[in-house]
């Protein structure tokens, strides 16, 4: 097995573990940290797959900005008392009990199929440096309709947040 394939498998396993942890752990703060860790491992995978720009965005936006947004939201939400917390812990454990079993079954079946298929280790691609040279051209010159859509979405998001906070301010004043 080549070194890059070994590293890729380790990083993929860490990504899956971090994201499963983010979903399964009960405190939401740990969930947000698990999500950030998953984004961090995914960033390294994107670098290994020659997508440096996507990796930088993944690291700065997903592991940075979105984590900060989630942690801020968690700080603003209600703190439950001890009895309610214990009841919710039990409910949460029961709700997510089947997930590790499903994931283990899928991993065993998938892993066995990959092992038995006798596949070559790496895909047959002729990756060149051209992808990096063309990226700026692709981002700014080839896209038209999706840039308009993206601008509309960003504006909608900005206006949405502005309206939410405006309403809150009006209610506080009343």
């Amino acid at each position: 097995m080549t070194a890059s394939l070994t590293w890729m498998i380790i990083l993929l396993a860490l990504t899956v573990l971090a994201l499963v942890y983010a979903i399964m752990v009960r405190p939401l703060l740990y969930s947000a940290i698990g999500l950030a860790a998953g984004s961090l491992f995914l960033t390294i995978i994107l670098f290994m797959l020659n997508s440096a720009w996507a990796a930088v965005f993944e690291l700065s936006v997903c592991a940075g900005l979105i984590t900060v947004v989630f942690i801020s939201a968690i700080m603003m939400t209600r703190v439950v008392d001890n009895d309610e917390n214990q009841a919710r812990n039990k409910e949460h454990r029961n709700r997510f009990l089947q997930l590790p079993i499903i994931l283990a079954a899928v991993t065993v079946i998938g892993g066995t199929l990959i092992y038995l298929a006798g596949l070559p280790l790496m895909p047959e691609t002729s990756v060149t440096a051209a992808g990096f040279k063309e990226f700026g051209e692709m981002l700014w010159q080839e896209r038209t309709v999706d840039i308009i859509g993206q601008i509309i979405v960003i504006l909608a998001g900005a206006f949405g947040v502005a309206v939410l906070f405006k309403k809150k301010k009006e209610r506080d004043n009343r």
């Binding site: 997508s51 051209e137 692709m138």
Partner: peptide, 21 residues
């Protein structure tokens, strides 16, 4: 990779907006 990176960056931006809203 250039084309898919452009799409991924678009997706990440929209993901951030969705999360914030």
């Amino acid at each position: 990779v250039a084309l898919t990176q452009a799409f991924v960056i678009t997706m990440i931006v929209i993901e951030a907006v969705v999360a914030v809203v």
